[in-house]
Amino acid sequence: MLAASQLGWTAGKKPIVKQVEISISKGEVFGLVGPNGSGKSTLLLLLAGLRTPSSGSVTLEGHDLRSLRRREIAQRIAIVIQQMETTDRLTVRETVELGRTPWLGPVSPFGEDDQRIVTEALTETDILHLADRTWQTLSGGERQRAHIARALAQKADILILDEPTNHLDIHHQLSILKLVKSLPITVILALHDLNQAMECDRIGLMEGGSLIATGEPVDVLTMNRIQQSFNVRMHSLADQVDGQTFLRFSLP
């Protein structure tokens, strides 16, 4: 559905993303993991068409993103990037309403359907009770959920999230991940928590701008790779309650 071939991006002369080959299938939850500065965020921006590749290309169902209009891309791909802040005293509902932008013309009014979609998005992210609060009164986690709600209101079939669990308490981390997995759409998300990454359908491991492995979490997150990429030791343990494996880390 969404694919990158020979994808590269350089800032000045410094390569940030190098020769990435990736193909995301419809409906899958694809996790992107890797140490700080490994190029995850930039790769996500490239996949959403928000950066123009220095080399290679990103294609959406075979069409190069550069050949599509911004509006067409926005109807298909929604993204929540990090550090989206404002000084405007917008309410949460108004923020989520921005998600309808790609579907509205310059003068077409906000319809009942749009209102319903916005309310749904507020409900799904558990912030309906905050709808009338202004942006400045929200905590970091509440802002994060408002942005996710805004992206959901965009009704795109691909959702890209850059560390969506950042700032969230453990309850909301788990509910966002549960929500993301339950959505009938394609989700690409960067994650820091490798245990959370284990829940994805497939993951990609980034290191120094390159995608060094992709596949099912158990195949990608091997002891050797983790030690190499993150410079930590890893043990996998079985949970005595439900028998699932989880990962523990320690410094070498």
Binding site: L50, R71, A74, A78, M84, E85, T86, L98, Q154
Partner: peptide, 20 residues
């Protein structure tokens, strides 16, 4: 007007909402 609203969270956010 709508395009300007989309700039509330910066130009990347505006672009992701379909604004040229």
């Amino acid at each position: 007007g709508r395009a300007l609203d989309a700039f509330t969270f910066g130009s990347d956010a505006a672009a992701s909402l379909g604004i040229q």
